[in-house]
């Protein structure tokens, strides 16, 4: 099942931590050849006119998960969940990536768009993996009984800055319309996700420069979460970050937000330099 996995994963790591990612290489072409063992295969990803197709942001999130694959395998997550699963490319890739685990890991995925949920189901089936897919707003209906149970949450949120009213649009618009600074949906998602994350849980989330990722990290830090930039990537249109959050006893309201640890961490964030490079 996992033949050659290690080699493929490490090859991939070198590739995107070096310059390849920044040069905007054709992601799709690569996924046909190099990714078959580790991620969902694009030709097998289902599609629907009202569902967001895997794009640079989806690939960035999956690449970030790939770069953390060894840690994810060590974590042996019991429950993994994607909020806003769209085409299903990300949750399917995660399930494939962790398939070698004998820990009985289970997967859940939600989307507000019924067509996306069905598309995700078809993508999962095409790859021989399973997740229970639910049509709901973020995690509505799950927040109480799933509280503190999910070990890995992955989110490619609707992060595009748009007029506020676009957030309420149905269908494919719900995959990208993020309101003011692209933060309005993100700011609803984060508190809900903190409810369902387990003590040892990890959250991976895509964010855009416009979303002020530093501010997101700071807000999460006030709630007791440490953070790290797993991947940064400038495409022609946007500069993308994949942020990772986890509970840290040394972070949060009890400790000073300006504790040496968080300060040194924030000062390392490459947002500014990257922004200049990209623009």
């Amino acid at each position: 099942m996992a033949d050659g996995d290690g080699a493929a994963a490490s090859g991939k790591l070198t590739e995107h931590s070096a310059s390849g990612a920044e040069k905007g290489l054709p992601r799709r072409g690569k996924s046909l050849s190099g990714r078959t063992l580790n991620t969902a295969q694009i030709p097998l990803v289902a599609s629907h006119p009202e569902v967001y197709e895997p794009c640079d942001d989806s690939f960035a999130l999956v690449d970030a998960l790939l770069s953390d694959k060894a840690q994810l395998l060590t974590l042996q997550p019991r429950l993994c969940m994607e909020v806003g699963c769209g085409s299903g490319y990300v949750i399917t890739s995660l399930a494939i990536m962790l398939r070698q685990l004998a820990s009985g890991t289970q997967y859940l995925a939600t989307d507000i768009n019924k067509h996306a949920a069905e598309t995700t189901q078809a993508t999962l089936e095409a790859h021989g993996v399973h997740a229970d897919v639910i049509v709901t707003d973020i995690v509505s209906g799950l927040e109480k009984h799933l509280a503190g149970m999910v070990d890995v949450v992955v989110i490619n949120p609707p992060y595009v800055p748009t007029p506020e009213e676009e957030i309420r649009c149905k269908g494919i618009a719900s995959s990208w319309a993020g309101g003011l600074n692209g933060r309005q949906v993100i700011d609803r998602i984060l508190p809900a996700v903190r409810e369902i994350l387990s003590e040892r849980g990890w959250l991976y989330m895509v964010a855009l420069e416009d979303n002020d990722p530093l501010d997101i990290c700071h807000l999460m830090s006030e709630m007791g979460y440490a953070s790290r930039v797993v991947l940064k990537r400038c495409t022609e249109e946007e500069s993308l970050f994949v942020l990772k959050f986890w509970r840290d006893p040394h972070t949060g309201t009890s400790a000073s937000p300006k504790s040496p640890k968080s300060e040194s961490w924030f000062s390392q964030l490459p947002f500014k330099s990257l922004w200049h490079k990209g623009s």
């Binding site: 897919v133 709901t136 509505s140």
Partner: peptide, 9 residues
């Protein structure tokens, strides 16, 4: 429907 519960309100 098709294995997917729809909890939307």
């Amino acid at each position: 429907d098709k294995g997917i519960p729809n909890m939307m309100l």
